[in-house]
Simulated assay, not measured.
Amino acid sequence: MECQLEEKKVSKVGTKETSLLIDSDVHPYIVSLNELVPYMDESLQRRMRLGRFQQSHNVKNNYYREFKIPSSHYENIGPLQGMRLDAVPPSGNLPGSDQEYLRSDLLDRTNTTFAILNAGHGTMSAHHNVDLAAEYNSAYNDWLYHEWIIKDKRFKMTILVTPLDPNLAIKEIERVGKREGCVGINLQNINIPLGKRHFYPIYEIAEKYNLPIVLHPDAEGSGEYSPSQAVGPASTYIEWHSSLSLVAQRQIMSLVFEGVFERFPKLKVVFIEYGFSWLPSVMWRMDKNWKGLREEVPWVKKLPSEYVRNNIRLGTQPSEEPFHPKDLIEIIRMAKAEDMLLYSSDYPHWDGDPIDKVFKHFPQDMKNKIFYQNAKDTFHL
């Protein structure tokens, strides 16, 4: 599906002229899980206590609890628990829940060509009831497709699947993966490194369907199936958030050294919201160690950095802020990462990157790639 839009400068954001824009990380929110009821069978509604099976909260039956989606234990104490105050729609509902307001506040304001929608309210990847998780993911995928994707061609979506059961993940990809507007697989982190054979069946169908794997922070640290931060749990949100890049670094090493990209050379894996300034040192260390230890991994036939540049993509948010802003450009050049970065607003979260400030010093050819071309190629738009 080729984008038919003429590739030229078309808009202004702030005071600087910018190129066509693809936003790789926009979060649609649901106000209540009951919005998913039309896409659930009665059994799932009953198990999740939704619809007519939802218990009221009064003194008589206050021992009933609403179903809770696994989430991080760390609370963002920023505005509205991580939401932008100016993203609250006129209705007063949760930011990201009002499609019309999101269109005007984000897509129209920044003249966004396409917005990749990644689940904003949490996923079921960390839930050990795999069958329940798979059914919930199917309901959510149908809701997002019918309530958002088919209503505006600028919206694209990543598919929620269940990483704990590759067979159920494949079943869901086969069900919805060829729908127009489905452009990626939202896999999520579990306690199995991405390079393990556990994931090979998912990678095989992802490559066959031309869908990149997308990882986004969500339920890390929430329970049995989510990894902790490197040496143990964090004490605060700021510690947890600042250490997220360790997850991406560890997963990239697993993917490369386990030989995933030799087996699946067309597979792209996109790390959203893990930063990117750490990339040069990771690539240098991997290359150095491979030169001395490659007998241990004979299936890794090229420099690890070559696999990283060819198969790994990174969202720009949250971009690091060096003392000298132009140093960020040098870091990108050090890693030869101009073709690897995808602009991500993280809307409607308050810690997103203003496009007219973070990238102010970037040369125009680099901005063209980061704002548009790299995402267009990665998601086959």
Rank of each mutant, 00 (worst) to 15 (best):
S11M: 04
G14R: 02
T15L: 05
S19Q: 02
V26C: 14
P38A: 04
M40W: 05
D41Q: 10
E42F: 00
Q45N: 04
Q45E: 15
R46M: 12
H57E: 13
K60P: 00
N61R: 04
Y63S: 10
Y64K: 02
Y64D: 06
Y64A: 06
R65N: 10
E66G: 04
K68E: 15
S71E: 13
S72I: 03
H73I: 08
I77A: 07
L80Y: 09
G82T: 09
A87T: 10
A87V: 13
S91N: 15
Q99S: 10
S104P: 00
D105A: 15
N118R: 08
G120C: 04
G122M: 04
G122H: 04
A133I: 09
A133F: 02
D142Q: 15
W148E: 02
D152M: 01
M157Q: 12
L164T: 06
P166Y: 13
R175Q: 11
V176Q: 13
G177E: 01
V183D: 00
G184I: 04
Q188P: 00
N189W: 04
N191D: 14
Y200F: 15
Y203S: 06
E204F: 01
N210R: 13
L215T: 04
A219I: 00
E220I: 07
E224N: 04
S226W: 02
S228Y: 11
S228F: 09
Q229W: 02
Q229G: 01
W240L: 05
S242C: 03
A248S: 14
S254F: 08
G259C: 06
V260P: 03
F261Q: 06
K266R: 12
K268Q: 13
S277G: 09
W278F: 07
S281V: 12
M283T: 07
W284T: 08
N289D: 15
W290V: 13
R309A: 08
R309L: 12
N311T: 11
T316I: 05
S319R: 06
D327C: 03
L328E: 09
I329G: 05
I329A: 06
E330K: 15
R333M: 08
A335D: 13
A337V: 03
S344R: 03
D346E: 04
W350M: 01
D351F: 07
D353T: 13
V358S: 03
K360V: 09
F362K: 08
F362P: 07
D365R: 14
Y372R: 14
T378A: 14
